[in-house]
Design a protein around this nucleic acid. Structure first.
Lengths: 194, 194
DNA sequence: GTCTATACCCGGATAGAC
DNA sequence: GTCTATCCGGGTATAGAC
């Protein structure tokens, strides 16, 4: 069940999350695996190839969310919820992906559209097509809530020996989603000076 | 006014923001500067030394915010506003600092307290000392709004040739702060089922 | 204050035996 | 499928002349 290839992926995910992609060496992975670096190259063509193996799944999920967004125009709550779940599923990866330029470039390189444009699509979906600048800012705010708070909530609940409970507490999910929606909400014109 | 040392810092800040710290080589900086790598070492002892020079100011600001937080217990709005301003002042740096483990380690290494503990202090200040778990999650949400939306708002307004206007649109600052406060607000018990 | 030249190391990757 | 041995490139940093 746990082929060597899968063990490598597990180890790499952990190390990448802890030390970053560039900060992790093939030797680190091999050491953790209990072999030499040469053995790794039997299973993967390159270091980047390992990263690709790690990114495959979450990237597919992400693209599927985008797709559904073009067809169905889901409600903001649904869309934000999908991103919370994505962040949960691939939480170690979120940490790496987010702002490592090396990885961003790699992703862009094997993506139909630039990741920047994809993000823009999400923002537009959240803010609405006829959104003014302020609405766009609020959409980014809501997105920020989802990304940041989800990781934070898991960091609190996860690491300690809470047994098999590993993901996000459902109550936290509700809390995060509510906060994101409040951030997104248009407060309307200033109250008191009509 | 623009000594070579200062020019190096400007160049480094730009390149670090664009390519990351580890992704930028001394040769990159020297090339942009118009000299050889050896010349750099007349002005700085090491690559890390350049980063330190860049981090000095914003780190001092950050620590000062923390200090004021221990003495005065500022309102959430004031505290969040201070972080918006910090993000604006050091926006290129925020991108690097945030999730490059190399840099996080370097910062921790020359900080009185671990940066993790410092963040915890901020969260407690936002959530209140008697906060329950949900309030902590909301505090992280508000923090996420500030960090994410501020960078996003500047990315929109900055790069195009908007002339000398370089920072954050005051209207955006208001919008971001309001969104963060909404995210932070306790919605109270569910409405409708008393 | 900047140059040329170079030392040195480390990380990714390969060759070929077992 | 893993080993030993090794290559190669690139990146930091230094020595010493100018």
């Amino acid at each position: 069940m746990s082929s060597t290839k899968e063990r490598i992926l597990v180890i790499a995910r952990e190390l990448f999350a802890r030390q970053g992609y560039t900060g992790t060496t093939i030797a680190d992975i091999a050491g953790e695996l209990g072999t030499t670096t040469a053995a790794l190259y039997y299973h993967f063509d390159s270091k980047a190839d390992i990263l690709r193996g790690l990114l495959e799944q979450p990237m597919a999920v992400y693209l599927r969310i985008l797709e559904g967004l073009r067809e169905a125009r889901p409600a903001a709550e649904e869309l934000l919820g999908a991103f919370v779940d994505l962040a949960v599923e691939s939480r170690e990866l979120s940490v790496i992906i987010d702002r490592d330029p090396t990885i961003l470039a790699m992703i862009d390189e094997q993506l139909p559209t630039s990741s920047e444009d994809l993000t823009k699509e999400v923002i537009i979906a959240l803010a609405g097509p006829d959104a003014d600048h302020a609405a766009v800012v609020r959409a980014h705010a809501a997105f920020g809530v989802v990304k940041h708070a989800t990781l934070a909530a898991m960091a609190h609940a996860g690491p300690p020996q809470n047994g098999p409970r590993d993901g996000l507490d459902p109550a936290d999910r509700v809390e995060i989603l509510a906060a994101a929606l409040r951030a997104l909400a248009d407060p309307g014109p200033a109250r008191g000076q009509p």
